[in-house]
């Protein structure tokens, strides 16, 4: 029988608890509120500017009027090239990690090898250990790649793709002073962005590969299929939606990044649309940056700015949402 004292304590505790939980709930409300405020503000001011003209016309009058068509084209071209570079490579890396490396962890592989002293087959266990080591290092490299600041990717794009590879190509193919490949362009910017999105694709693909049950692979091998045939006919078709999710999420991330393209090919104003991979390009995010920070008359450009931001935000949201929907549908289907 609880004494009055304990009962009173319990009541007080319940009260204190309720306050605490309310505070916690408030944090969630705050987050939702922030999202609503940001998106709402941008939508409210931006929607008015976004007309068909806005989307289809190039900018005029020193970017204080007109539309953002070239920026849309540039962003689209960039993202397409980036996807072509990142997705096959990312999927291939994930396939390597999941299908070709031992499933046991590094310490287990080491222990198995050490225990096999003096037995035949020791060499095979050593190879397996090396394989596990390589896999661990690769996975850690992928994780670190994901954490590199985007501006460092920009530096790398400049220092490696443009100045090392690009200039070397130019020196080998063109007269001494001319530059074609050794400057900012769609190609180098796309490759730089592809590096940035590679970890996203790799991780999502590995997760997708993991959902294919192991005994399907066994059944295929038992029928005399090679490992590649098993991957091609059973594993990949079974994981395609997960791979698609990863690709879309990677794309949505790459479409919004600006720092990596600052020095690798984005331009403020170009009178022409990019036609070749060696062309520079206009870009929605870059446009926002320049308009926000270097516009001579902020008030006049504000509507345009809001419109550009709105288009960019809608683009990334749409991609993000598509990826999330596909992923949750896939997970629901698996659970069923």
């Amino acid at each position: 029988m609880p004494s009055p004292a304990t009962a009173a304590l319990r009541g007080a505790r319940r009260g204190a608890d309720r306050i605490a939980v309310t505070l916690l709930a408030l944090s969630v409300i705050l987050i939702v509120g922030i999202l609503v405020v940001i998106v709402g503000n941008i939508a409210w001011h931006g929607v008015r500017t976004v007309t068909w003209e806005f989307i289809s016309q190039p900018p005029r009058q020193g970017l204080t009027a007109g539309g953002i068509f070239p920026a849309i084209v540039g962003t689209a071209a960039l993202v397409i090239l980036m996807t072509i570079a990142a997705v096959p490579l990312g999927v291939a890396t994930a396939i390597y990690l999941h299908e070709y490396t031992p499933a046991e962890g590094l310490s287990l592989a080491w222990r198995r090898f050490k225990k096999s002293k003096g037995l035949p087959g020791r060499r095979r266990l050593f190879t397996r250990f090396l394989s596990a080591l390589l896999a661990t290092i690769t996975r850690s490299a992928v994780a670190n790649l994901a954490g590199i600041p985007s501006i460092v990717f920009g530096l790398f794009g400049l220092g490696f793709f443009i100045q090392f590879i690009g200039r070397s190509i130019d020196r080998a193919t063109l007269p001494p002073v001319e530059l074609l490949w050794g400057q900012g362009s769609l190609l180098w910017a796309a490759l730089t962005l592809a590096l940035l999105t590679l970890p996203t694709v790799i991780v999502a693909t590995e997760e997708a590969l993991r959902t294919v049950p192991h005994d399907l692979r066994e059944a295929s091998l038992a029928l005399g299929a090679t490992r590649w045939e098993t991957i091609r006919r059973i594993v990949l078709p079974g994981s395609i939606s997960g791979i698609l999710t990863g690709a879309i999420l990677g794309i949505s991330r790459g479409a919004g990044e600006v720092a990596p393209i600052l020095f690798t090919g984005a331009a403020y104003y170009l009178p022409y649309l990019p036609e070749r991979v060696t062309d520079q390009f206009m870009h929605l995010g870059y446009h926002v940056l320049i308009l926000s920070t270097q516009s001579p008359d902020v008030e006049a450009t504000k509507p345009l700015l809001y419109g550009t931001v709105f288009v960019l935000l809608m683009l990334t949201f749409l991609l993000n949402l598509t990826g999330v929907i596909i992923r949750s549908r896939t997970r629901a289907r698996l659970r069923a």
């Binding site: 059944a219 091998l221 029928l223 005399g224 006919r233 059973i234």
Partner: peptide, 28 residues
């Protein structure tokens, strides 16, 4: 493995049609 076939304890048909399951080894 084409000459020695195997049937497993837990049936493991591929997530394909019946036809494609049986035809798998031949297509390979």
């Amino acid at each position: 493995r084409r000459k020695v076939g195997m049937v497993f304890q837990k049936s493991n048909p591929f997530p394909k049609s019946i036809f494609e399951n049986v035809a798998y080894g031949l297509r390979i």
